[in-house]
Design a protein around this nucleic acid. Sequence first.
DNA 1: TCAACGTTTCACGAGTAGTTGAAGGATGGA
DNA 2: TCCATCCTTCAACTACTCGTGAAACGTTGA
Lengths: 124, 124
Amino acid sequence: MERSKVLSALSALAHEARLDLVRLLVPRGDEGLAAGEIARALGLSASRLSFHLAALEQAGLIRSRRVSRNVIYSADLAGIGGAISYLLADCCMDHPEVLACCGASARHALHRVAEGDLAPREGP
Amino acid sequence: MERSKVLSALSALAHEARLDLVRLLVPRGDEGLAAGEIARALGLSASRLSFHLAALEQAGLIRSRRVSRNVIYSADLAGIGGAISYLLADCCMDHPEVLACCGASARHALHRVAEGDLAPREGP
DNA sequence: TCAACGTTTCACGAGTAGTTGAAGGATGGA
DNA sequence: TCCATCCTTCAACTACTCGTGAAACGTTGA
Protein backbone atom coordinates (compact mmCIF):
# COMPACT_ATOMS: atom_id res chain seq x y z
CA MET A 1 0.00 0.00 0.00
CA GLU A 2 1.37 3.41 -0.93
CA ARG A 3 2.20 5.91 1.68
CA SER A 4 -0.21 8.57 0.42
CA LYS A 5 -3.05 6.08 0.49
CA VAL A 6 -2.22 5.19 4.07
CA LEU A 7 -2.12 8.84 5.05
CA SER A 8 -5.54 9.47 3.60
CA ALA A 9 -6.84 6.31 5.24
CA LEU A 10 -5.54 7.45 8.61
CA SER A 11 -6.95 10.90 8.26
CA ALA A 12 -10.27 9.43 7.17
CA LEU A 13 -10.35 7.21 10.25
CA ALA A 14 -9.38 10.06 12.57
CA HIS A 15 -12.95 11.21 12.98
CA GLU A 16 -15.55 9.96 15.37
CA ALA A 17 -18.40 9.62 12.88
CA ARG A 18 -16.24 7.88 10.30
CA LEU A 19 -14.82 5.44 12.82
CA ASP A 20 -18.40 4.62 13.83
CA LEU A 21 -19.22 4.18 10.19
CA VAL A 22 -16.47 1.63 9.65
CA ARG A 23 -17.50 -0.13 12.84
CA LEU A 24 -21.03 -0.34 11.54
CA LEU A 25 -20.10 -1.62 8.09
CA VAL A 26 -17.35 -4.15 8.89
CA PRO A 27 -19.61 -6.80 10.46
CA ARG A 28 -22.00 -6.58 7.50
CA GLY A 29 -19.34 -7.51 5.00
CA ASP A 30 -20.24 -7.29 1.32
CA GLU A 31 -23.92 -7.01 2.04
CA GLY A 32 -23.37 -3.48 3.31
CA LEU A 33 -25.99 -0.92 4.22
CA ALA A 34 -27.90 1.77 2.34
CA ALA A 35 -26.86 5.36 2.97
CA GLY A 36 -30.25 6.19 4.44
CA GLU A 37 -30.05 3.35 6.94
CA ILE A 38 -26.56 4.41 7.95
CA ALA A 39 -27.79 7.95 8.49
CA ARG A 40 -30.57 6.70 10.74
CA ALA A 41 -28.25 4.35 12.63
CA LEU A 42 -25.67 7.03 13.33
CA GLY A 43 -28.01 10.00 13.62
CA LEU A 44 -26.34 12.01 10.86
CA SER A 45 -27.88 14.39 8.37
CA ALA A 46 -27.93 13.15 4.79
CA SER A 47 -25.43 15.68 3.55
CA ARG A 48 -23.04 15.14 6.44
CA LEU A 49 -23.17 11.39 5.94
CA SER A 50 -22.56 11.76 2.23
CA PHE A 51 -19.50 13.85 2.99
CA HIS A 52 -18.08 11.28 5.38
CA LEU A 53 -18.86 8.39 3.04
CA ALA A 54 -17.05 10.16 0.23
CA ALA A 55 -14.00 10.65 2.44
CA LEU A 56 -13.91 6.96 3.37
CA GLU A 57 -14.47 5.81 -0.19
CA GLN A 58 -11.80 8.17 -1.49
CA ALA A 59 -9.42 6.66 1.07
CA GLY A 60 -10.22 3.15 -0.14
CA LEU A 61 -11.83 2.04 3.10
CA ILE A 62 -15.35 1.49 1.80
CA ARG A 63 -17.05 0.77 -1.52
CA SER A 64 -20.40 1.78 -2.95
CA ARG A 65 -22.86 0.38 -5.44
CA ARG A 66 -26.24 1.60 -6.56
CA VAL A 67 -29.16 -0.72 -6.08
CA SER A 68 -32.31 0.79 -7.46
CA ARG A 69 -32.84 4.07 -5.62
CA ASN A 70 -30.44 3.22 -2.83
CA VAL A 71 -26.68 3.46 -2.68
CA ILE A 72 -25.28 0.56 -0.71
CA TYR A 73 -22.02 1.06 1.14
CA SER A 74 -19.83 -1.78 2.35
CA ALA A 75 -16.46 -1.99 4.06
CA ASP A 76 -13.43 -2.57 1.87
CA LEU A 77 -11.78 -5.07 4.16
CA ALA A 78 -8.61 -5.30 2.11
CA GLY A 79 -8.26 -1.54 2.18
CA ILE A 80 -8.73 -1.36 5.93
CA GLY A 81 -6.40 -4.29 6.48
CA GLY A 82 -3.83 -2.77 4.17
CA ALA A 83 -3.71 0.44 6.16
CA ILE A 84 -3.34 -1.41 9.46
CA SER A 85 -0.76 -3.70 7.94
CA TYR A 86 1.25 -0.68 6.80
CA LEU A 87 1.29 0.65 10.32
CA LEU A 88 2.41 -2.68 11.74
CA ALA A 89 4.94 -3.73 9.17
CA ASP A 90 6.27 -0.71 7.31
CA CYS A 91 5.96 1.89 10.00
CA CYS A 92 6.67 -0.17 13.12
CA MET A 93 8.77 -2.82 11.33
CA ASP A 94 6.84 -5.54 13.14
CA HIS A 95 8.38 -4.43 16.40
CA PRO A 96 7.73 -7.18 18.95
CA GLU A 97 6.43 -4.84 21.61
CA VAL A 98 3.91 -3.30 19.23
CA LEU A 99 2.83 -6.73 18.03
CA ALA A 100 2.44 -7.85 21.62
CA CYS A 101 -0.37 -5.31 22.02
CA CYS A 102 -2.12 -7.01 19.12
CA GLY A 103 -1.47 -10.44 20.57
CA ALA A 104 -5.08 -11.52 20.79
CA SER A 105 -5.79 -10.42 17.24
CA ALA A 106 -2.63 -12.10 16.06
CA ARG A 107 -3.62 -15.38 17.67
CA HIS A 108 -7.00 -15.09 15.98
CA ALA A 109 -5.36 -14.53 12.63
CA LEU A 110 -2.87 -17.32 12.95
CA HIS A 111 -5.51 -19.74 14.06
CA ARG A 112 -7.47 -19.00 10.92
CA VAL A 113 -4.37 -19.30 8.79
CA ALA A 114 -3.62 -22.68 10.34
CA GLU A 115 -7.14 -23.81 9.57
CA GLY A 116 -6.75 -22.76 5.97
CA ASP A 117 -9.47 -20.13 6.24
CA LEU A 118 -7.15 -17.37 5.16
CA ALA A 119 -4.62 -16.81 2.45
CA PRO A 120 -2.10 -14.77 4.40
CA ARG A 121 -0.23 -11.90 2.85
CA GLU A 122 3.41 -12.67 2.22
CA GLY A 123 5.94 -10.54 4.08
CA PRO A 124 7.92 -7.75 2.35
CA MET B 1 -7.64 2.14 25.09
CA GLU B 2 -10.29 4.83 25.07
CA ARG B 3 -11.87 5.96 21.91
CA SER B 4 -10.83 9.60 22.23
CA LYS B 5 -7.22 8.54 22.70
CA VAL B 6 -7.41 6.43 19.59
CA LEU B 7 -8.90 9.30 17.61
CA SER B 8 -6.12 11.63 18.62
CA ALA B 9 -3.55 8.93 17.86
CA LEU B 10 -4.99 8.43 14.39
CA SER B 11 -5.12 12.11 13.66
CA ALA B 12 -1.55 12.47 14.93
CA LEU B 13 -0.41 9.69 12.59
CA ALA B 14 -2.30 11.13 9.63
CA HIS B 15 0.52 13.45 8.69
CA GLU B 16 3.55 12.73 6.59
CA ALA B 17 6.15 14.25 8.89
CA ARG B 18 4.72 12.58 11.98
CA LEU B 19 4.53 9.19 10.33
CA ASP B 20 8.19 9.61 9.37
CA LEU B 21 8.91 10.57 12.93
CA VAL B 22 7.37 7.41 14.34
CA ARG B 23 9.18 5.36 11.71
CA LEU B 24 12.43 6.95 12.78
CA LEU B 25 11.89 6.44 16.50
CA VAL B 26 10.41 2.92 16.64
CA PRO B 27 13.61 1.02 15.75
CA ARG B 28 15.57 2.99 18.36
CA GLY B 29 13.35 1.85 21.17
CA ASP B 30 13.89 3.43 24.57
CA GLU B 31 17.19 4.92 23.56
CA GLY B 32 15.38 7.43 21.39
CA LEU B 33 16.82 10.43 19.64
CA ALA B 34 17.42 14.07 20.56
CA ALA B 35 15.08 16.63 19.01
CA GLY B 36 17.94 18.26 17.16
CA GLU B 37 19.02 14.99 15.57
CA ILE B 38 15.45 14.27 14.52
CA ALA B 39 15.20 17.71 12.93
CA ARG B 40 18.39 17.05 10.96
CA ALA B 41 17.31 13.55 9.97
CA LEU B 42 13.94 14.69 8.69
CA GLY B 43 14.92 18.12 7.45
CA LEU B 44 12.43 19.99 9.60
CA SER B 45 12.75 23.39 11.20
CA ALA B 46 13.05 23.35 14.97
CA SER B 47 9.68 24.95 15.59
CA ARG B 48 7.83 22.71 13.18
CA LEU B 49 9.43 19.64 14.68
CA SER B 50 8.54 20.79 18.16
CA PHE B 51 4.96 21.24 17.04
CA HIS B 52 4.77 17.73 15.61
CA LEU B 53 6.53 16.16 18.58
CA ALA B 54 4.04 17.81 20.90
CA ALA B 55 1.16 16.40 18.84
CA LEU B 56 2.58 12.87 19.00
CA GLU B 57 3.36 13.09 22.68
CA GLN B 58 -0.10 14.47 23.43
CA ALA B 59 -1.54 11.50 21.57
CA GLY B 60 0.50 9.07 23.67
CA LEU B 61 2.59 7.81 20.77
CA ILE B 62 5.97 9.09 21.94
CA ARG B 63 7.63 10.06 25.23
CA SER B 64 10.21 12.67 26.09
CA ARG B 65 12.88 13.09 28.72
CA ARG B 66 15.44 15.80 29.23
CA VAL B 67 19.09 14.75 29.25
CA SER B 68 21.32 17.68 29.91
CA ARG B 69 20.64 20.22 27.18
CA ASN B 70 18.92 17.76 24.93
CA VAL B 71 15.37 16.51 24.95
CA ILE B 72 15.30 12.85 23.99
CA TYR B 73 12.22 11.51 22.29
CA SER B 74 11.40 7.82 22.07
CA ALA B 75 8.49 5.82 20.70
CA ASP B 76 5.80 4.75 23.16
CA LEU B 77 5.41 1.26 21.79
CA ALA B 78 2.48 0.40 24.01
CA GLY B 79 0.67 3.53 22.89
CA ILE B 80 1.25 2.79 19.23
CA GLY B 81 0.31 -0.85 19.67
CA GLY B 82 -2.78 0.13 21.62
CA ALA B 83 -4.05 2.30 18.80
CA ILE B 84 -3.45 -0.40 16.19
CA SER B 85 -4.99 -2.99 18.45
CA TYR B 86 -8.11 -0.85 18.80
CA LEU B 87 -8.46 -0.69 15.05
CA LEU B 88 -8.08 -4.44 14.72
CA ALA B 89 -10.13 -5.64 17.63
CA ASP B 90 -12.66 -3.00 18.63
CA CYS B 91 -13.25 -1.38 15.29
CA CYS B 92 -12.90 -4.34 12.94
CA MET B 93 -13.88 -6.98 15.52
CA ASP B 94 -10.92 -9.10 14.46
CA HIS B 95 -12.56 -9.67 11.11
CA PRO B 96 -10.71 -12.54 9.43
CA GLU B 97 -10.29 -10.75 6.13
CA VAL B 98 -8.76 -7.73 7.82
CA LEU B 99 -6.48 -9.93 9.87
CA ALA B 100 -5.46 -11.78 6.74
CA CYS B 101 -3.86 -8.57 5.46
CA CYS B 102 -1.74 -8.54 8.60
CA GLY B 103 -0.89 -12.21 8.18
CA ALA B 104 2.86 -11.79 8.13
CA SER B 105 2.82 -9.55 11.16
CA ALA B 106 0.48 -11.90 12.92
CA ARG B 107 2.78 -14.83 12.28
CA HIS B 108 5.64 -12.78 13.62
CA ALA B 109 3.69 -11.97 16.75
CA LEU B 110 2.52 -15.48 17.37
CA HIS B 111 5.95 -16.90 16.85
CA ARG B 112 7.27 -14.59 19.51
CA VAL B 113 4.40 -15.44 21.80
CA ALA B 114 5.09 -19.14 21.33
CA GLU B 115 8.72 -18.57 22.20
CA GLY B 116 7.72 -16.78 25.36
CA ASP B 117 9.28 -13.52 24.21
CA LEU B 118 6.02 -11.67 24.60
CA ALA B 119 3.33 -11.38 27.20
CA PRO B 120 0.35 -11.11 24.90
CA ARG B 121 -2.57 -8.88 25.74
CA GLU B 122 -5.68 -10.84 26.69
CA GLY B 123 -8.73 -10.46 24.46
CA PRO B 124 -11.64 -8.17 25.43
C1' DT C 1 -44.58 12.68 -18.11
C1' DC C 2 -44.80 13.82 -13.39
C1' DA C 3 -44.22 13.54 -8.47
C1' DA C 4 -41.84 11.24 -4.76
C1' DC C 5 -37.86 9.36 -2.88
C1' DG C 6 -32.94 8.67 -1.77
C1' DT C 7 -28.71 10.69 -2.28
C1' DT C 8 -25.14 14.10 -3.65
C1' DT C 9 -23.43 18.70 -4.44
C1' DC C 10 -23.03 23.48 -3.49
C1' DA C 11 -22.31 27.90 -0.97
C1' DC C 12 -21.45 29.73 3.24
C1' DG C 13 -19.52 30.58 7.95
C1' DA C 14 -16.96 28.91 11.93
C1' DG C 15 -13.36 26.58 13.85
C1' DT C 16 -8.91 24.28 13.75
C1' DA C 17 -4.38 22.64 11.94
C1' DG C 18 -0.05 23.79 9.69
C1' DT C 19 3.90 26.88 8.59
C1' DT C 20 7.12 30.55 9.43
C1' DG C 21 10.23 33.50 11.88
C1' DA C 22 11.20 35.78 16.08
C1' DA C 23 11.34 35.77 20.95
C1' DG C 24 11.67 33.22 25.24
C1' DG C 25 13.32 29.62 28.81
C1' DA C 26 16.61 25.93 30.35
C1' DT C 27 21.20 24.07 30.57
C1' DG C 28 26.22 23.75 30.60
C1' DG C 29 30.91 25.61 29.80
C1' DA C 30 34.26 29.54 29.93
C1' DT D 1 28.35 35.87 35.46
C1' DC D 2 28.10 35.74 30.60
C1' DC D 3 27.52 33.36 26.45
C1' DA D 4 26.38 29.55 23.34
C1' DT D 5 23.43 25.79 22.56
C1' DC D 6 19.18 23.36 22.44
C1' DC D 7 14.52 23.41 22.40
C1' DT D 8 9.78 25.45 23.05
C1' DT D 9 6.40 29.00 22.70
C1' DC D 10 4.25 32.80 20.51
C1' DA D 11 1.95 35.73 16.96
C1' DA D 12 0.41 36.04 12.45
C1' DC D 13 -1.00 34.17 8.42
C1' DT D 14 -2.83 30.62 5.19
C1' DA D 15 -5.27 26.56 4.16
C1' DC D 16 -8.05 23.10 5.32
C1' DT D 17 -11.93 20.60 7.64
C1' DC D 18 -16.48 20.48 9.64
C1' DG D 19 -21.38 21.35 9.81
C1' DT D 20 -25.82 23.41 7.98
C1' DG D 21 -29.47 24.15 4.80
C1' DA D 22 -30.95 24.59 0.14
C1' DA D 23 -30.77 23.07 -4.43
C1' DA D 24 -29.79 19.58 -7.88
C1' DC D 25 -29.49 14.92 -9.48
C1' DG D 26 -30.86 10.13 -10.74
C1' DT D 27 -34.27 6.53 -10.17
C1' DT D 28 -38.79 4.61 -9.60
C1' DG D 29 -43.70 3.95 -9.94
C1' DA D 30 -48.16 6.01 -11.08
